[in-house]
Amino acid sequence: MEQRAYITQRMDELKKQVLTMAAMTRKALNDAIKAFLVLDSDLAESVIHGDVEINEIENQLDQFNLELLALTQPMAGDLRAIVGSMRMTMNMERIGDEAVNLAHRTVFLSTRPPLPLDPNMDKLARIAQEMLSDAIRAFVEGDVQLAASICVRDQAADDLHYKIMRKVITDMLDESRIAERGVHHIMAAKHIERVADLCTNLAEAVIFIVKGEEIKHRCQA
């Protein structure tokens, strides 16, 4: 096969694999959030067990990228696509880990009497889910503006996380017997807020792939 055609084929394959991982990560996050909101321990357990597949595809993508670098000595857009994909897979794997952490909270909380949920938790979850979906869409479509909008939304996630924490702390001060569940709620909010942070990393990777602009650590500014 002609070298350029070979590279194009491999780059298409890379994109497909990144999207496969993205779909798995999104499912893990959505299931973990759903399980948390309704305290469904079975669904939470499935998220925990499913993480091994996300880890496995991350390893496969690492190997795939390594081979592409070694065998095709990519330049310019190809090089950025590979480096950007490596960043994306690393961040998606971490999102998978946060989904697992959230699922562990759910498994624990499902063994205790339910604690009323702060409505902000639902809002925070929705923001994180949308940020992930949009990051994936921005990657598929090479949409830099959409990617940039993800960065902006991270502030809303941070604010909601802070509000939830304040509310739960206040509740715990009022009623100390809810302290254990309250801590799990605070940690759950933290896991979701971390997902939002990681989505900004995905958005930064998309901008890097498309435009070659490095906005790491400046994304939310």
Binding site: Q3, R4, I7, P74, M75, A76, G77, D78, L79, R80
Partner: peptide, 15 residues
């Protein structure tokens, strides 16, 4: 080699 400005450069260096 990482961020060429011109399309023709990009096309050439990526083969």
């Amino acid at each position: 080699f990482t961020k060429p400005k011109e399309r023709r450069t990009e096309d050439y260096i990526t083969g």
